[in-house]
C-alpha cells in the first residue's frame, strides 16, 4: 500500500507523536504536583501567581499559546552554531512544543491535584499528625496516595486530551504524525484517503492504549471499601 518513503514518514511521525506525548505527560504531571503544592503554600503572592497561571492557560487557545511560545518567545532564546554557519536556537520547535503543551496541560493538572488533595479528609490528616508524622511524611504516605486515587479519573481525561492536543504542534512544523501525513497527502494525492484512515486509527489506538493503561492502574489502586 505504501512506498518505503511514505512508510518511513508515517513511522517517524508516530514515533515523534509518542515522544511528544510521553514528555508532555511527564512534565505536565510534574507541573501539576508542584503547582498544587504551591497553591497550598502560605505565601500569598505564590498562590496568586499559580492562580494567574492556571486562569491564563485555561482560558487561551493552546494553539495560540504554542505559536506564542515558539515564535514570540523563541526569538529571545540564545542560539548556537554547530558548524559556524547555521544559527540554531537552543530550544528547537519540538522543545517549544513540549514546553508549551506541558504548561497547557499542567494548568489543568494543578486544579485536578488540588481537588484531590482537598478531598482527603482533615480528620485523616489529623490522625497522621497525632501519630507523630511530620508534614512531609503525612503528605508522602497519607495525603498523596489517597489524593492520587481521587484524581485519577480526571487526570485520565486530561492526559487523553493532551495526547490529542499534540497534533497542534503541527502549527510549528513539528514532524509528528499529522504533519507527516499532511506532507504525504500533498505529495501523493492518491494516498489521501488511506492516510487519513491510518491517522484516525493510530490516534484512536494511542488514546486507547493510554485509556487502557490508566484504567488498569486505577483498578490496581482500588482499595476495598474506599470510594466507588
Amino acid at each position: 500500500m505504501y512506498e518505503p518513503v511514505q512508510q518511513g514518514k508515517i513511522l517517524s511521525g508516530i514515533w515523534m507523536t509518542i515522544k511528544l506525548s510521553f514528555f508532555c505527560l511527564i512534565l505536565s504531571v510534574v507541573i501539576g504536583i508542584v503547582g498544587a503544592f504551591a497553591q497550598g503554600s502560605k505565601i500569598r503572592i505564590l498562590r496568586s501567581f499559580v492562580q494567574g497561571y492556571i486562569q491564563f492557560f485555561r482560558n487561551t487557545p493552546p494553539y495560540v499559546q504554542l505559536l506564542f511560545f515558539y515564535f514570540a518567545l523563541g526569538q529571545f532564546t540564545p542560539t548556537y552554531s554547530p558548524d559556524g554557519w547555521l544559527e540554531l536556537p537552543i530550544i528547537s520547535n519540538v522543545g517549544w512544543a513540549i514546553i508549551s503543551l506541558s504548561f497547557f496541560a499542567g494548568a489543568f493538572n494543578v486544579e485536578i491535584f488540588r481537588a484531590g488533595i482537598e478531598a482527603v479528609a482533615d480528620s485523616t490528616k489529623e490522625a497522621a499528625e497525632s501519630l507523630g508524622f511530620s508534614r512531609f511524611q503525612t503528605f508522602r504516605y497519607v495525603i498523596f496516595p489517597l489524593a492520587i486515587r481521587v484524581c485519577l479519573p480526571s487526570l485520565n481525561n486530561n492526559l487523553i486530551n493532551l495526547v490529542k492536543t499534540t497534533t497542534q504542534a503541527f502549527g510549528i512544523a513539528v514532524p509528528e504524525l499529522l504533519y507527516q501525513s499532511v506532507t504525504i497527502w500533498n505529495d501523493y494525492p492518491s494516498a489521501q484517503y488511506p492516510t487519513m484512515l491510518l491517522v484516525f486509527v493510530v490516534y484512536i489506538l494511542l488514546v486507547g492504549v493510554l485509556v487502557l493503561s490508566m484504567n488498569t492502574w486505577e483498578k490496581n489502586l482500588r482499595i476495598p471499601g474506599y470510594g466507588q
Binding site: V163, K164, T166, F170, L178, Y193, V199, F200, V207
Partner: peptide, 18 residues
C-alpha cells in the same frame, strides 16, 4: 466515541479534504 477521542485538528483536516 469516535469523534470524542480523535484530535480536533485531524477532524478538521479530514473534513477539509473529504
Amino acid at each position: 466515541q469516535l469523534f470524542r477521542n480523535s484530535p480536533w485538528l485531524v477532524l478538521l483536516f479530514i473534513v477539509l479534504l473529504a
